[in-house]
Design a binder for these strands. Structure first.
Lengths: 193, 193
DNA sequence: ACCTGAACACCGTTCAAGT
DNA sequence: ACCTGAACACCGTTCAAGT
């Protein structure tokens, strides 16, 4: 059923899906109450593919980095889902819940106090989803055109970027910084009490 | 013209806008080539309201925090724009370019090397936009329902959250961590050479 | 329980025709 | 230069009717 994602999200219309299944569009509503249901189903299926295995074997900080990379890579290829998943309730999504459980277990094992675990997860997730969206932006997003004269510093900064994957570099910079900052925070929290 | 945002984004339809302006829907296409144009126009207008003033007076790290807070607050109220702005080219958006210029100037002043400035901006921006989307999620996003038995650790972590604004707390945790991590990174970059 | 076919109430957009 | 009105090609969804 999810094999249809190969066609891209612009083509993910109820009519197209129905055609793929050789069924009438209205028939879909016997299995799904609305299109949102379908998207959440796909999301849960996708979350199953995110690699959380490191939380069982590695220190929490390296596990978070691996999880975040896998998470971003997955949704960079499914960017249209990002706005949906960011606000979609988790209830009933078994694989999604399982993912969070593994992450939460890893953080607790790593010494994070219960009240901060969900906050840390949400913080990393926000960065990941924002980065997944950024990953889909065209290479010329930062081309200022004739406004270059207004913004000389920004223009040279954009030109000074290196590597053939600016979005990827920005993600790596942010991820390592975020994890480093979380490490520092955990230190102050645990030594403080 | 943008006074219509008060009506919410579900109501931001070309027909509704035309009605508001007492004009036929097709007349709008004399001023805008597509709806995307309109959204980018709104985005640029919104970016004007983001507070970048701290970059001129404060150290880069406290300026980034203030900018990020203002940025998130703005788009938390305009969440439907987030997926658009994340991939929208900047060309022709004067206020947006000006914002980036101020941020870039502040970072350079703070000692950041040119090749890393754009990366740092994108990293912070990704976190901000991800957080803006998260801010609009319903309070029960993490209610696991009958799957609680599968995810005991995550369930208790969610219950252990404190404060009446979980999304806001997560944003603050992530923001301070991210900035702390960037500070550390800048240190290693500048002392390394 | 699951399907079909027709219909509904919308979308954004185009285009000839007017002034 | 800017507008109107009609039309187009879609959307997601509903609902009576069938099996």
């Amino acid at each position: 059923m999810t094999l249809i994602e190969a066609r891209g999200y612009g083509a993910l219309t109820m009519a197209a899906l129905a055609r793929e299944l050789r069924v009438s569009p209205s028939a879909l509503y016997n299995h799904v109450t609305a299109k949102q249901d379908l998207l959440r189903w796909i999301q849960d299926h996708l979350n199953q593919r995110i690699d959380c295995s490191a939380f069982a074997t590695e220190p929490w900080d390296v596990a978070v980095e691996r999880w975040a990379r896998s998470y971003r890579d997955t949704y960079a290829q499914h960017a249209p889902l990002v706005p949906v998943i960011a606000v979609a309730p988790i209830a009933g999504a078994a694989h999604t819940v399982e993912m969070y459980e593994q992450v939460a277990a890893g953080l607790r094992e790593g010494g994070w106090p219960d009240p901060l675990i969900a906050e840390a997860i949400v913080a990393v997730e926000s960065f990941v989803l924002g980065s997944a969206m950024d990953a889909t932006s065209p290479p010329d997003v930062f081309e200022v055109g004739d406004l270059a004269v207004t913004a000389p510093i920004f223009t040279t900064a954009v030109k000074a970027r290196r590597g053939d994957d600016p979005a990827g570099s920005a993600f790596e910079l942010g991820l390592t910084a975020l994890v480093e900052g979380l490490r520092a925070r955990l230190r102050t929290v645990t030594t403080g009490e």
